[in-house]
Design a protein around this nucleic acid. Structure first.
Lengths: 207, 207
DNA sequence: GCAAAAACATTCCCACGAGTATGTTTCTAC
DNA sequence: GTAGAAACATACTCGTGGGAATGTTTTTGC
């Protein structure tokens, strides 16, 4: 795999993420993805066997962005609530920073590819879904630690994990990139979001 | 509009919701929707001008399910935290009870119909999105009331509204209908979900 | 510098599905 | 019961987009 080839692939993946976000998985055409790059279909099909494979690549990339942001935080020796808050904040940042990729994930996932996919493709998709589950498991682990330590009140670790991911990933549904927005602005959103999720809404809990 | 006509339309809408949920908005074909009913395209196109109109009808129906469940709760004279919890619980129930409709809403919304839609269709879609916003506003109103009364701690009403809707609507992503599941089981899910969102995760807030 | 392979562009094919046109049956009004 | 309209079924058109086949240019290994 030459250097130039990898770079070209990355460009295609990035362009695809943008097209997928703007037009959805089905309406986004391979011609359009190529056109964004000032190229034609030939280039895309030279690097990817099918449109599905492009989607898989975008999916994987999106998950890697998440893992890269959160994995380092697991080693911190801080109480579970704080760790959870920092993980959620980091995740919020990734959502905003890699919006096209994260939105793409939400467009279909298991809906996309129904029957029409080959057995090999289903295998890849299953791996990707497992990858997403592994990511959610990172949060569940911290939830369990907090429950054991008495610093978190978690009736159901599974359900709490779902709620956290739902609230965090919901960000891509309403967040819109604004050109005059600074990193500090996004940080405020991410921190507020994390605090709301961990701290809840009831008054008197903490500041 | 005859009685038989309305019933037929409702059947089509319901079948469409199931197809949309299973295969996505694009992959779900009009032929398939008709086939679920044991009919053909002719029946569908006799009642709906286009596939988009079917989607609109499903969307509207989904929103009406939500409003019908939550609107009555607004008149209750109870503290904001309790009202919010009950609203969230009711919403959770609707999500599970009308799963195909609610999942359909998440499939595209603004992504679906890009440029290819007529001006009239865009108008309808804008109305539907406004309808969804109105629904979210019900929650924001209660949040504001709680903030004013001091029973809720809401740094940003807008953000809190997003978080609540995100966590609640995320339910349709992971909830799966199980035949041996009773209403009590679903109620437990809905209540736990609402408690988590309103109460948060930090220990010591309340039971 | 020269084969050969990679990295594209161009052209073409064709399956698929939305929408239409037209036929056929069933209900309704009188 | 008999027009006529509503409620379908059947058969067809046609644009579109995924993917393959083939041609052209650029890079790389020797």
């Amino acid at each position: 795999m030459s250097r130039r080839s990898i770079e070209s692939q990355q460009q295609i993946i990035h362009a695809a993420a943008v097209c997928f976000m703007q037009n959805g998985l089905e309406k986004a055409t391979v011609d359009e993805i190529a056109h964004v790059l000032g190229s034609t279909k030939g280039r895309v099909y030279h690097h990817f066997a099918s449109k599905n494979e492009i989607y898989f690549a975008v999916y994987r990339q999106a998950m890697e962005y998440c893992f890269d942001a959160v994995l380092p935080l697991l080693d911190l020796e801080i109480p579970a609530p704080e760790k959870l808050t920092r993980m959620a904040t980091a995740h919020g940042h990734v959502m905003m920073d890699t919006l096209p990729f994260q939105r793409t994930i939400r467009l279909g996932v298991d809906v996309y590819l129904r029957g029409s996919a080959t057995e090999a493709e289903r295998k890849v998709l299953a791996d990707l879904i497992a990858m997403r589950n592994d990511y959610e498991a990172l949060y569940r682990a911290v939830l369990q630690q907090g429950q054991d330590a008495g610093t978190l009140s978690v009736p159901s670790v599974a359900l709490a994990g779902r709620v956290i991911m739902g609230a965090l990933n919901g960000l891509v549904d309403w967040y819109r990139v604004r050109p005059d927005q600074t990193r500090a602005d996004r940080d405020k959103i991410a921190v507020s979001l994390a605090d709301l999720i961990v701290g809840g809404l009831r008054a008197g809990a903490d500041a």
